[in-house]
Amino acid sequence: MFFKYLPACLLAGAILASTCRVEAQTETDAILMNKSQFCSGFLYSHSAWDEYWEGTLKRNNLNLGTVTTQSVLYMATYGITDNLNIMAGAPYVWTHASAGTLHGMKGVQDISANIKWRGVNHAFNQKSKLALYAIGGFSTPLQNYVIDFLPLSIGLGSTTFTGRLMADYKYKRWFTTLWGAYTYRNNVKLDRPDYFDTHNHNSNEVKMPNVSTFQLKAGYRGRYLIAEASLTRMHTIGGFDITRNNMPFPSNQMNASVVGAGVKYTLKQHTNLSFIGNVGYTFNGLRINDHYFLESRNVGKATTFSGGIFYAFYTQKTARAAHKDNMHQQ
């Protein structure tokens, strides 16, 4: 279920992509490629859980053991202008359950494409700067993979559209970023002719609830090193709980709170090349006086780590030179 999101954190296009990607010129960070700069690379992710929330009940499942989702994402970003980037990526995903007899699944999942626009880039003074971004995203399955086999499905199979607004404030080399996203998810179709969610449907079509996601992150952003900590909240608007001892379903209400940390390092000697690493941990929200806030629901209590390598270069020499001049002037 979730099982899938959190685990293969890059899955399903935009949704929780954020939770496990450090600043790497993605749709969820306040970094842009310069005009005519092209950056691409691979990111490997590993996500595993042996406990999950059935509704809000945390439990394990001896017939699944530890469910592991791994993926390799290829992603590329291109600077159309200094303030407008386009990016696209797609992961290959494979799943495995350590116990029980269920067969793991594997395959190419969803392609996602984003357009990121910086509308405001205001320097208050030499030290502090505010930038505002609007990002539009789209994702769709690249093949008709199995969605009705959670938690071992590689994705939910929904075509999605995401609108995201982001604010980034930087003081010297310290930054904080806040964004909110709303993801519209198209309905999906099952292999079986009928199904029951909270009532019976004489249909293979499943109405997918939309999703909102928020992230707050802060850290250090230097020329070569970026280090950050983040808190991400995914909330499914609608959907239903997994019933007692039932299997998860694509339109469950999958809510998750994730804390994460990440670094990105660009080689000084070879600035084309950068490495990133990230960890994420799903937790059960905050408990205050027996009330939970940001409660996780119908998702795996996943621990995720990822690592990747990205290579950037200019497609036009003049652009690079112009940028260098620009840099020197700064």
Partner: peptide, 18 residues
């Protein structure tokens, strides 16, 4: 992009055979 998002949001009714 955002227009597609809004338009898409209009119809999620599912077809039921009976």
């Amino acid at each position: 992009c955002f227009g597609a998002l809004l338009l898409g949001g209009c119809s999620k009714d599912i077809y039921d055979r009976t």
